[in-house]
Design a binder for these strands. Structure first.
Lengths: 112, 112
DNA sequence: CAACACCGCTACAAATAGTGTAGCATGCCT
DNA sequence: AGGCATGCTACACTATTTGTAGCGGTGTTG
């Protein structure tokens, strides 16, 4: 799958708008999950595999490649970790944690 | 694909934590894109297809089903639109628009 | 009423993406 | 040298997505 570099055509948009590249990237299986799991700190490849409970190494590796190229993640001695940019991104997304709890309550309430 | 209802097992997590259901949902192809596009207002099925430039009707329909069940989207006379919950979600995500612009600058600068 | 233009949506085959298991190559420790 | 952990690849299998065609329904217009 072509890496959604902002400025180029991506899945779902020919305009090259950065937001479209980002939505393409984050909309890929496991991309959000990987970033979310890295939030708890750096991890080696295998640790990250464990945090993601069921990701295949093949896919983990290809997502990490994409995330590295797009500079949201990099690898240091301590393992894979979020870059400055990656942390900014996660900061924006973090409120989803709390929000999802209310959302869950709402859905489960309606289901009865 | 099973719908990621919070409280049940979802892709990547056996715990049933709402955030995991949400990450599963949003990590599916086009889910984020659909929500993002609905932000500009209600749309009929076909209008939504156009907004999403390249989505296939098959997939659009199955994503919409998921989003309806999970109460982020519903259908009214005016077409598909975000629910109250959907709007809350998009409010959280909205800053990604601006952020992505800076991110793009950063990446493209480094590439030279 | 017939012809037309929309609508939401489905069918289905072909193409693409993801899974799961095994294991290679490398480096470190004893 | 032997054992162990690491990052990562190979590859066959399965699941998901695409793309095109078109169905059945609801106006609207002549």
């Amino acid at each position: 799958m072509a890496i959604p570099v902002p400025g180029s055509q991506v899945r779902g948009s020919t305009t090259g708008k950065p937001i479209m590249a980002l939505l393409d990237l984050l909309g890929r299986t496991w991309a959000l999950g990987i970033v979310w799991n890295l939030q708890q700190g750096p991890a080696t490849f295998r640790q990250l595999q464990l945090r993601c409970e069921q990701i295949s190494p093949t896919l983990l590796n290809s997502r990490l490649k994409e995330l590295k190229i797009l500079q949201l993640v990099d690898m240091q001695d301590s393992g894979y970790q979020l870059t400055q940019q990656g942390m900014e991104l996660i900061t924006i997304i973090l409120p989803l944690g709390d929000w999802s709890q209310n959302w869950a309550k709402h859905i489960l309430k309606e289901e009865n």
